[in-house]
């Protein structure tokens, strides 16, 4: 059984179609990526997964549970967590408070402290900056807070929406390492990226979205050798 499965998911923005009949599977332990240009419907799909945007058609399963129609906090509680596009931190709260708020649904205090230590180990920079307001950090550091906040909720599946957006190449590299590290600890990752190089580097399989539809899917070798991907994203 797949950890996450969408069956024929369709989402509208007002009257216009943003995601059409998308079916995808994410197996436990994998890093799956979704690539596609701006406006291909990637973010909308993630928002639909999280219950931030209602699906007009289709079903979403997480484990053996149907989660479409659930409220966001209920979905988060089941271990499906999104690190959103644009990070969406709480800019006037400290880094530490931002991280702790990510554990809003975790009851066990010791568990929270343990996860916090893990996050600090993954991003030592955050420990140094823990009392600073999140809004005063650099873009890369803010991305670390966003990922850290996601991890604090103890995800089974961590979705990341464009974590490399607006970051310097060397920071993108670090984000890639972090993703591998997170996956190594047993967390399944669904990575939505425009930066195909990053996606190809860390993912084991991949879906390509174009104007709301899945146009290609397969494991990384297939994708890498595909003419479509080469033409569209890798510059020939």
């Amino acid at each position: 059984m797949a950890l996450l499965e969408t069956r024929g998911v369709t989402v509208h923005y007002g009257k216009s179609l943003a995601v059409e009949d998308v079916s995808l599977r994410v197996e436990e332990g994998d890093v799956v990526s979704i690539i596609g240009a701006n406006g291909a419907g990637k973010s909308t799909l993630l928002r639909a997964l999280m219950g931030l945007k209602p699906v007009t058609d289709g079903e979403i399963f997480f484990g053996d549970e149907k989660i479409d129609g659930m409220r966001t906090n209920e979905i988060v509680k089941r271990g499906l967590i999104l690190v959103p596009e644009g990070r969406r931190l709480f800019p006037y709260l400290s880094v530490l408070t931002n991280l702790r708020l990510g554990a809003s649904l975790v009851e066990d205090k010791d568990e929270i402290e343990k996860t916090l230590k893990d996050v600090y180990r993954l991003f030592p920079r955050l420990k140094e900056r823990r009392n600073q307001k999140a809004g005063t950090l650099s873009g890369g550091e803010q991305q670390m807070v966003a990922i850290g906040r996601g991890l604090m909720g103890k995800p089974k599946l961590l979705c990341m929406d464009e974590p490399s957006l607006g970051l310097a190449p060397i920071v993108v590299e670090a984000v890639g390492e972090a993703i591998k590290d997170i996956n190594g600890k047993g967390v399944t990752v669904l990575l939505v990226e425009q930066n195909v190089h990053l996606a190809l580097e860390v993912a084991s399989s991949c879906y390509a979205l174009q104007v709301g539809r899945v146009v290609m899917s397969g494991d990384m070798d297939t994708m890498r050798s595909s003419d479509v991907v080469k033409k569209a994203y890798l510059g020939g």
Binding site: R71, T72, R88, P91, L101, A103, S104
Partner: peptide, 24 residues
């Protein structure tokens, strides 16, 4: 905790929902 959750909601409501805060 609840006070900080209130602050979080006023600073970024979607970020708050995604952190698992029950906004309602």
């Amino acid at each position: 905790k609840h006070g900080q959750q209130m602050q979080a909601i006023s600073q970024d409501i979607e970020g708050a929902a995604l952190s698992g805060i029950n906004v309602h």
